[in-house]
Structures are given as structure tokens and as C-alpha cells.
Design a protein around this nucleic acid. Structure first.
Lengths: 132, 132
DNA sequence: TGCCTTAGTATCATACAGGGTACTGATGGA
DNA sequence: TCCATCAGTACCCTGTATGATACTAAGGCA
């Protein structure tokens, strides 16, 4: 029996399975890192978040934060001060995704180990080939 | 205390954390679907795999399969016949990633539910706003 | 002779995620 | 008077992932 993946549309988003939906919401280059740091520190200001992620630009950080906020994974509290102060933290929904990150992190660790083992084996075979 | 993400290099791949490594190996538009179908059906030929994924091109399917094979998540058995026959199946490493997919799938389902609820609420507020 | 099959390659085209740089506003301090 | 602060926006650019299309090999069959 062959199962097909059909396309769903919801709230301007389209996806063929829940896995893909999850990736759209919490995947990408920066979102997991943002969520993970917010989980570690509970509350972070925009500038502090930026410091934890060397390489991200203000433009990208703003964009990712806006999307996470729109999906209600994080909450944004702006204090009407000058200079501005804005604090970000995880919502309950945001916290619920952390165990998945940890599972993926663990899998990545095991994968790295197995690749490291493979590389050593590869070198062995290489030297054997070189002898022939 | 602020924690930083440093970049690692392994086997021509670069990543800042194990989560990112995992995404590089099993993320993307097609790889999860390929792995999931292989898990359901145990063994699939190239053509059968293609039929389960309407929308994928041969070029993309080949590319994804090659990468998954290089990372040893799937195994490829080619029979020397004409027309050709090639069978794909999950390796042990490939099977080990399935529980993560299921966790992401469940999270996606819950997220969809909560968004659907939000949409209904949104409509409610909209009509209230319209009255004012 | 010509057409069907399968599992691909090769070539060219495109969309979108992500990135670089400059600019803003209101205030406190030198 | 000038500069620093913070949390952004506006505008433009690039690279990679992905896609469309055409082509191949070797045999069976009409």
C-alpha cells in the first residue's frame, strides 16, 4: 500500500505533513538557537540575544523574533523608555518544543560519533588502497 | 551567564550545534518524507518512492537519496538488470531518527490545533471590532 | 524498425532564505 | 554641541535549495 502526502493550507502556510509544519515554525538557521537561549536564560533583551549569537544581523534577529512571536512561541514585552528596552521570553508553547530540540541534539551527537568512527575506518581503507 | 554557539567542522560539514547537524542530515523538503516512507514500507524501489511523493523530480529524488546514502541513513541495492532495479531501505541509523520525526509530528499536530483555535478566536474578535 | 521500460544525468532556470549596510528616534552624559 | 545608547526599519544583494526539461543505456516485444 502506497501512502501519499497531500498538501494542507492553514493560516497562510502550506505543508504536506505535521513534520514539515513543525520545521516551518521552529526550523531554519536561527530559530532553534533563539528558543534554546531563551530557555536557558528565561528572559533576554534584544541586545543580549544578539550577543549570544555572533554572526546574526539585527535585521535577521528582528525577523526571526517577529515570526516566533506571531506563532506565539515567544512573548515580547516593550518598556516605553529611552533608550528602548524590550524583553523576550518563551511562552508555554515555546517551552513545549524544547524536548524535541534535546532529542535532535542527542541524535546529532550520536551521528557525529558514528561519522568520526567512519572517518577513521575510511582512512584505514584509504591506506590499504594506496598499497595496492 | 551568556553561552555562545561556536562553529564545528566535520567531514566537510560545518555546524554550530548538534541540533543544526541533525537538521543538515535529515532536514530539508524531501528527506523526512523519504525516510518516513521507507520506514512504513521497509523496502522501496526508486520508481515506487517517486510515486509516493507527487511533486518531486527525478533529479531531486536522486540527489536526496545519494546524500542519505552517503550519511548511511539508507542503503541502496542495485540489481544488474535491464530495465534497472534499485531497492532502498533504512539502515539502523536511519531507523533511529524515526522517533524524532514522530515527536515533531505530534508537536505539529498540537500546534495546528492551537492555531486553528486562535483563528476562531480571531474571527470572534474581528466581529466584535466590526460592531464598535 | 521502432517503442516501451527503469533509474538515473546534464543543463539551464528560479525562488526564497539569509545577509550587508545605512538610517532612525528620544534621551543622558561629556 | 556632539556622541553614545538600544531596538529596531528600509533597501538592496547573493547563494543555495529546488525545479523543469531533455537526454541516456540495454534489453524485450510488436
Amino acid at each position: 500500500m502506497i501512502r501519499r502526502c497531500d498538501v494542507k493550507e492553514l493560516d497562510g502556510r502550506s505543508y504536506r505533513c505535521f513534520f514539515e509544519l513543525t520545521l516551518q515554525v521552529v526550523g531554519g538557521k536561527w530559530k532553534p538557537i533563539i528558543l534554546y537561549h531563551l530557555w536557558l536564560e528565561k528572559v533576554l533583551r534584544f541586545g543580549a540575544l544578539k550577543k549570544t549569537m555572533p554572526g546574526i544581523t539585527q535585521r535577521m534577529l528582528t525577523k526571526q523574533l517577529r515570526e516566533l512571536e506571531a506563532d506565539r512561541l515567544i512573548s515580547r514585552v516593550a518598556y516605553n523608555e529611552m533608550p528602548p528596552r524590550v524583553e523576550y521570553s518563551l511562552t508555554e508553547l515555546g517551552e513545549s518544543v524544547i524536548p524535541i530540540f534535546q532529542a535532535m541534539r542527542n541524535w546529532g551527537m550520536e551521528f557525529e560519533k558514528s561519522v568520526a568512527g567512519e572517518l577513521i575506518t575510511g582512512e584505514h581503507y584509504e591506506s590499504v588502497d594506496a598499497v595496492e
